[in-house]
Design a protein around this nucleic acid. Structure first.
Lengths: 243, 243
DNA sequence: CGCCCTTTTGATTCCGGTCAATTCCTGTGG
DNA sequence: CCACAGGAATTGACCGGAATCAAAAGGGCG
């Protein structure tokens, strides 16, 4: 398992403009890949944080949980995504495999940092990846803070469609549970279920089965089934309108 | 105005462990500083994005606005914070001065990137800053997604106290309006006002005047006036418990 | 001094959460 | 291959926290 189905991507960022000769290829020599079971923890907040990670295949979730059980999924990690990029000694979140057999490559942080120090292209690429991750998470703040349930689910489906490699036409695979989607969007699982039903009813999407659907009317999704769109934070018909 | 009241910090990150001889000092030679009026735009999403920026003094807000008037402030930018770090050609957000006379240093992106390419320490420092920004915005997702109004306001006050340079004891200056706070926390301005009153009533804070307050019971703030605390995403009594 | 914007406080509404009850998968073992 | 068990998903009824609507009080700047 080499896991080079394309260049390394930002944690949930889309691909950079230049795809040729990824400078991070040199990182692969330092990688160790491990398989995880569904629900298995890849790292926890109190781990020493001596590695960076990359999803090779499958899917993972990065999340925080409160003592009273509230959970927030900060990110879904898809194949190609780098994660665990920190300078501190402790992670802030836990990362767990979402699907059975998720493959994760692990890179020793020190070695990568040395590599970045000696090869400016590696350093630059990592910076780009980090900048894209910042862009992505700030865009998610807008979704979490100011969107209705319908808009949240719509944005989620569009995001997933954009990011998924294994998408045929507009077919989307929802590998995660309704609970995961709920905690990603800061909703209740019941609300996610209801909203998906409503979007199906209104014809914005077609629900093939519980974990497969197809986007029929992308514009309706972006507008939350309702009206308006974004002025300042929006970019015409760009790939990821909230980015 | 040289603006070196300490090392450059991540956009809203706290200070790094090593404070001596900041590698970014070399950046200052390339800086141009401008003063902005209260409410004045520093950049807008459709600007060409050929610069990086740093707050020298005052305060700025990074925000998105919908066509129907909903606004989300993604970040308050304080003295020392770097912002506008992107690789794309367009910003995602608008940045505006919050206080009259806010001073912003502007660095040509190309030149800084060249500098980072030639001096690994600069590249590394920028990476650290970016990683801290990621940590900060992901921590904010938890606040936006899963906290009550009281918890949000409490977390905001603690964050501001931590980040503010000009804090005397536990005195905090709220330079921004209730509307700004509301849009930062994804609440209504009325809710912010109400919650501050309640926190004053309950003795968690003391309201000196409209834009000055003092934290009396920090623990009460962290717990939203109620009970529980965080398990996984929390770090004992660390400086910024949501980081 | 006075206008206007900001803030506070109160009354009411509503979206999404919570509680509850089926139904539907999926995987397991006979 | 089919029956069964247990979690996942859906759907409905009701509730509650924060938004919205409204109005009064406060404060800053001309």
């Amino acid at each position: 398992m080499k896991g080079n189905e394309g260049p390394v991507r930002a944690a949930n960022g889309d691909c950079p403009s230049q795809l040729v000769s990824d400078p991070l290829a040199a990182m692969e020599a330092l990688a160790a890949t491990t398989l995880y079971h569904r629900g298995e923890e890849i790292y926890s907040p109190d781990d020493p944080a001596e590695h960076w990670y990359r999803v090779v295949s499958g899917m993972a979730r990065k999340c925080a949980v409160t003592a009273d059980g509230r959970r927030q999924i900060v990110d879904f990690l898809l194949p190609g995504d780098l994660f665990g990029l920190i300078v501190r000694h402790e992670h802030q979140f836990a990362v767990e495999a979402v699907v059975e057999g998720t493959a994760i490559a692990r890179y020793p942080r020190r070695r990568i940092e040395m590599l970045a120090g000696s090869d400016p292209r590696v350093g630059r690429r990592i910076r780009e990846i980090a900048f894209e991750a910042i862009a992505r998470s700030q865009a998610r703040m807008v979704i979490l803070g100011r969107m209705t349930a319908q808009e949240k689910v719509g944005a989620f489906l569009i995001e997933l469609a954009e990011r998924s490699r294994e998408r045929l036409a507009d077919g989307i695979v929802l590998a995660m549970s309704r609970y995961d989607i709920a905690d990603y969007l800061a909703l209740a699982a019941e609300t996610v279920s209801r909203t998906l039903s409503e979007l199906g009813q209104s014809g914005a999407i077609r629900l093939e089965d519980t974990h497969r659907l197809r986007i029929v009317d992308r514009d309706a999704l972006e507008e939350g089934g309702g009206e308006q769109g974004w002025r300042q934070a929006t970019f015409g018909r760009r790939a990821q309108p909230w980015l």
